[in-house]
């Protein structure tokens, strides 16, 4: 079952064509890493998928998307609980909110202890957990995680990736899209990788294969 199916998608950023007719799909249960240098079009792709910028041509089909933005972007003046409530605003199934809250607080007990604290007063790692929790509250089928490792201690990053792994495996019909500049880290936590350069997919393969490719090692992982 495809969670995301993109075909021939082109996206402009201002007047510049940033994404050139790319096609790919993400299956249920998959963790897919999108790697590539600055300006490869990773952020543009995300912004198009979540509906912030329009596409020029092509199409995509997807279920509910939860977005964990680069730089976390929690609502700093809202409390932890209010951030999570904003995440749950679109839920229509009764009882789902409570169930998802239990999931979030179960995985991130740090947040449970700080429900009434303003999100801006949390540490970087806690804010990242909150950003993930907020996205989980949408009950997404596809979770897009943008530059998760930026500005976080390696141990925290490890914990957070472990939580994401558990989330994908916890229920069928979920998938994870990891977007990272840190290519090695992204591929280590993914099943499959796509390499983006100047708005095109230049390489696709499973993570172990990509991680051991000498050419890629030279240009991306050194």
């Amino acid at each position: 079952m495809s969670i995301l199916r993109v075909s021939g998608l082109s996206v402009n950023r201002g007047l510049l064509k940033t994404i050139h007719s790319i096609s790919f799909s993400i299956e249920a249960g998959e963790r897919v890493a999108f790697v590539g240098p600055n300006g490869a079009g990773k952020s543009t792709l995300i912004e198009c998928l979540i509906g912030l910028i329009p596409r020029v041509s092509g199409s995509f089909e997807t279920g509910r998307i939860g977005w964990v933005p680069e730089g976390r972007r929690v609502f700093a003046d809202l409390t932890v609980r209010e951030n999570l409530d904003v995440g749950a605003d679109l839920l229509r199934v009764p009882g789902k909110r409570k169930q998802l809250l239990e999931l979030v607080f179960g995985v991130f007990p740090d947040l449970a202890a700080r429900v009434n604290q303003a999100a801006g007063t949390l540490s970087g790692g806690q804010q990242q957990m909150l950003a993930i929790g907020r996205a989980w509250m949408r009950d997404p089928e596809l979770l897009i995680v943008d530059e998760l490792s930026l500005g976080l201690a390696p141990l925290v990053v490890k914990d957070v990736f472990r939580a994401l792994d558990l989330w994908v495996r916890d229920e069928s019909g979920r998938a994870l899209m990891i977007v990272e500049q840190n290519a090695r880290m992204a591929l280590q936590h993914a099943d499959r990788g796509l390499i983006l350069e100047s708005g095109r997919i230049v390489r696709e393969g499973n993570s172990t294969e990509l991680l051991s490719d000498p050419d890629l090692v030279k240009s991306y992982f050194s």
């Binding site: 912030l52 972007r73 609502f75 809202l78 209010e82 904003v86 679109l90």
Partner: peptide, 22 residues
């Protein structure tokens, strides 16, 4: 209220708010 919370969320980050359906 939910509406008040939405206003505060938009004040802080309209893009993220939009991604959550506000």
């Amino acid at each position: 209220t939910r509406m008040g919370r939405a206003i505060r969320a938009v004040a802080q980050d309209p893009e993220v708010a939009l991604s959550f359906g506000i």
